[in-house]
Structure formats: structure tokens, C-alpha cells
Amino acid sequence: MSLREKRLMSELKSLTQKTPDLIKIVKTENLMTWLIEITGAEKTLYEDETYTLQFRFDTEYPLKPPEVVFLQESPVHPHIYSNGHICLDILDESWTPALTVESVLLSLISMMSSCKKKERPPDDSSYVRAWKKNKFSPKKTKWFFHDNKV
């Protein structure tokens, strides 16, 4: 078993045994691609709204971050593009190998919970137009993290 598989098996076991509120593991038959549902927290703009996330782990996981995107409808949020790509520092340059699927999920829920106004990033249409041409992975995007508070 590779180091990546061993680590993913441990993460899956831990997450299944003690799944935090608002998180539901949907599909993990293929260890390298997981589907997970998250639900907006109570008393936030996303209360009771459920979204599906796809996690993909390449051969360098956990030394490099997983690729994480929203499938189908993505939440309307200033850091989430309408194609499902997410601008979040820990999925890019601030990733550390001590972070896990669970810590990514909790960061996303927290990012949604602190949102004050449902709107898309200002460059949503140009970004998504560029993406439609060659469907690049969000890991190929150079993100600029100007505001971690939203």
C-alpha cells in the first residue's frame, strides 16, 4: 500500500467513525476520488442548503493539497466560482501535510458561515469563460488571497 493510500484509509476511518455535524460522506469506493455533502450551518446565509464537493487526491497527497471542487450547483459566495472552483488559501500555498479532508471541510463551512452577502467573485464570468476553453484544474490557477475574512 502506498503512503497516500495508507493515509487516506486512516482519514476515511477517522471521518466515518466520528463525522462532524453538517458533513455527509457520499461516495468513497474509489479511494482517490471522494464525494462529500456539506450543509450550511444554522443561522447563516446557507442554512439548510446542501452542496456536493469532490475531493481528488493525486500521487503527491498529502504532501500536496487535494483538488477540491463543488459539483453541480456551487454556493453563491465571493470566493466560490460558478464552475465550482474555490479560492481558499489552504487548498493552495498555505496547504500543509498536517491538514486533512476534515480540516478542509471545516474551513469551507466556516468560510460560508462568515459570509455576509451571497454574491459571486467579481471576476466570475471571465474566469469561468477561460475555464470553459480547456477545463483546467483549480490547482493550475494562480489564486490571490486578498481577503481571508469573508
Binding site: K6, S10, P62, A98
Partner: peptide, 10 residues
């Protein structure tokens, strides 16, 4: 500090 299974490979 970081969790047993997380530190294992390192």
C-alpha cells in the same frame, strides 16, 4: 500535537 495517523508517515 498533530494526531497519530497524520504524523505516522513522516
Amino acid at each position: 500535537r498533530y494526531g497519530e495517523f497524520i504524523m505516522e508517515m513522516f
